[in-house]
Simulated scan of single mutants.
Amino acid sequence: MADKGNARQAAILFEQLGDYQDAHEKAVANRELADAQDRENLKAQQAQQYNNAMAAFGKGDLNTAGNLFAQLGDYQDAKQKLALVQNAVAQSQQQAQAQNYERAYQTTLARANHAQRSADLRLALNDLAQFGDYKDAKQQLADLQTKLPGLLANEQSQKRARSRRNKRIAIIAGIVVVLLVVIGGGFAYHAHTVSALNKQVTVQRQANASSFNKLPSNTQQDIKDMLATYHGNVNDYTYTLKQKTANYNIVTYKFVGPDHSKDILPTSGTRTYNQTAISHQ
């Protein structure tokens, strides 16, 4: 007789020997032993699977428990346990559906209660109507519908206010445009006038320079010193050498130019600078 681990293989070998001695009897004996071993192994596997199924069921893993009990077939009370698992799954699904339905209902109620626009409220009311007779859905729907006229009135009021504000903005914008045009035109005119005046001043100064250049060099320097005191330009004036004395050159000046704002020298009195006595003409 082969040991338990080799009974199936021994049975095959004895069968191959045919009628040799007691090979047939040994083949039968080893086959029976192998079958018994298979039955023992199956029982052990089923027992382990049953225990695993019960453990999964205890942990709430209904899918695993259901699959394991279904595979056990008629083993012990596996069918009854499978029925329990299937019932638990159905109840769990129903409970989940109920929870989801309640959650959806509460979410819809919250949307309707917090709606700040009529469009949002209408959408929420439409969804709420789908709950039919669920709990107090009908009463909630009726109560929340009374909120709609107030939202509509408020939106109309805001629309009118925006319209008035937009009109005021348009008027102000128009005034600003007109002012910009006027200011822009005035600025352009002023800029043109200033530019033309500056050109005239430049031309006049070039003409005035000849009288200054005719003066003695020491007199020119004295006049420059005087103009520097008053922050003026020597070429804004024409000069006449009236008299030469032993100590002084007597010179008179006269403003000649288009821009009288540049006439900054005194119009009376005589100022003495080194060897020059200077007075207004």
Rank of each mutant, 00 (worst) to 15 (best):
G5I: 02
A10C: 04
E15V: 02
H24K: 15
K26A: 08
V28F: 08
V28W: 08
A29V: 02
N30E: 14
E32Q: 15
D35A: 05
D38L: 14
L42I: 07
Q45K: 08
Q49S: 11
M54D: 07
A56P: 01
G60Q: 05
D61K: 02
N63P: 00
N63T: 14
A65I: 00
K79H: 14
L82A: 12
L84M: 14
A90I: 12
Q94F: 06
Q95G: 15
A98M: 14
T108V: 15
T108D: 02
A112C: 09
H114A: 08
A115G: 00
L121K: 03
L123E: 05
N126G: 09
D127V: 11
L128V: 09
Q130M: 10
F131H: 06
Q140P: 05
L152M: 14
K159C: 00
A161M: 01
S163I: 03
A170I: 04
I171R: 11
I172Q: 12
V176K: 06
V182S: 01
F187D: 00
A191G: 04
T193E: 05
V194G: 00
A196S: 11
N198F: 06
N198S: 10
K199A: 11
V203I: 11
N208P: 10
S210L: 15
K214R: 11
S217R: 13
N218C: 05
T219A: 13
Q221L: 10
L227C: 14
T229V: 04
H231S: 13
N235K: 08
D236H: 10
Y237R: 03
L241S: 03
K242M: 11
Q243D: 12
K244F: 05
A246C: 02
N249I: 01
F255N: 05
G257K: 00
H260P: 01
R271L: 13
N274H: 14
T276P: 01
I278E: 03
